[in-house]
């Protein structure tokens, strides 16, 4: 049995995106309900969210962007950069807590206080770019945690695995020249899905060439295609990379009941994927695994998907 951390904070719910937005507070409430009903809450180590230190946010975002986000948000404007990014005055606080909480989870893993963690955060992060909010994302939680691990703990090789149905453009761009961070993403093919990046030929730049890998999946595909691609691309490449720490951008929107895209993964498919990732972490990273929520919009499926996810982290 692993010591699995769980990051959640009521203040994540205050990030109000309006009446009809799919990235809504009920998502996190569904996840907490799922873990509670599955009897998993008492098994988890609670992680306290804290505000991210500005110096960590600045490792991946420009100071100008951070200031602009703060000003626009606190001035009461309802969106940042694009109609997708609906917000309220509490969004600034929630976004700092999401990034800071993810850093805290990374710290606890490195300090040996826990083995792995699941961070149920809002707003999500993997679309957030250096200078721009995008696709419901403001701060790139996963990228900030990776920079923290590099700088504060001297982690030399970090693997990031992104199975959200959308490509994590922000994360890819932040590390595409960095050969010490391997970014792997499996997502719906960008010609049929937001954000239009993550094509097979995007494989990293300069020194980072060969340290980015994208597996686009055509619409309508499910467990079997994911299994084939993960066995062909993710497992051999990440095994060869030998990451000392694994970070997961955990999006549950490739599920067949999720209306955001056109993939057909089942609960079993998600289980298989996370087991593969846990196994990779065991083999190369002494089990060090930090899973951070991205998308996933089916309020019916999120409780069970989150419970399965956390159960596998606990089993290790």
């Amino acid at each position: 049995m692993k010591r699995t951390g769980f990051l959640y904070d009521q203040r994540f719910l205050l990030h109000d995106t309006g009446a009809h937005h799919p990235e809504r507070a009920e998502r996190l409430q569904a996840i907490v309900r799922g873990l509670t009903e599955a009897g998993l809450m008492s098994e988890l180590v609670m992680i306290t969210a804290r505000h991210a230190d500005m110096r960590w946010l600045q490792t991946v975002h420009s100071e100008g962007y951070i200031r602009r986000f703060e000003e626009v948000c606190l001035a009461g404007h309802r969106m940042l950069d694009c109609q997708d990014n609906q917000m309220c005055p509490d969004t600034w606080d929630a976004a700092q807590l999401a990034a800071g909480g993810t850093i805290e989870a990374a710290r606890m893993i490195m300090a040996g206080e826990i083995d792995n963690a699941f961070c149920a955060v809002r707003p999500p992060g993997h679309h957030a770019e250096r200078e721009r909010a995008m696709g419901f994302c403001y701060f790139n939680n996963v990228a900030v945690a990776a920079k923290y691990l590099q700088a504060e703990w001297g982690v030399e090789r970090i693997g990031i695995i992104d199975f959200d149905v959308h490509h994590g453009n922000g994360t890819q761009h932040m590390f595409e020249s960095d050969p010490t961070v391997f970014y792997y993403s499996i997502h719906q093919h960008p010609s049929f899905c937001f954000p239009g990046t993550g094509r097979e030929f995007e494989q990293g730049l300069g020194d980072g060439n060969g340290f980015t890998k994208n597996s686009p999946v055509l619409p309508g595909q499910g467990d079997e295609t994911y299994r084939q691609l993960i066995e062909k691309d993710m497992l051999p490449l990440l095994s060869a990379f030998e990451p000392q720490f694994l970070i997961v951008s955990a999006g549950f929107d490739a599920h067949r009941d999720d209306e955001m895209a056109d993939m057909r993964l089942t609960n079993r498919g998600f289980e298989w994927i996370i087991r593969c990732i846990v196994q990779l972490a065991e083999t190369h990273a002494s089990g060090k695994l930090l899973s951070v929520l991205e998308g996933g919009y089916s309020l019916e499926r999120l409780p069970e998907l989150a419970a399965d996810h956390v159960r596998i982290l606990l089993e290790g």
Binding site: E23, G135, H166, F194, E259
Partner: peptide
């Protein structure tokens, strides 16, 4: 559509 949010418009 310059958005990630297509659930409502599709519906």
């Amino acid at each position: 559509l310059l958005t990630n949010n297509v659930i409502n418009v599709k519906k």
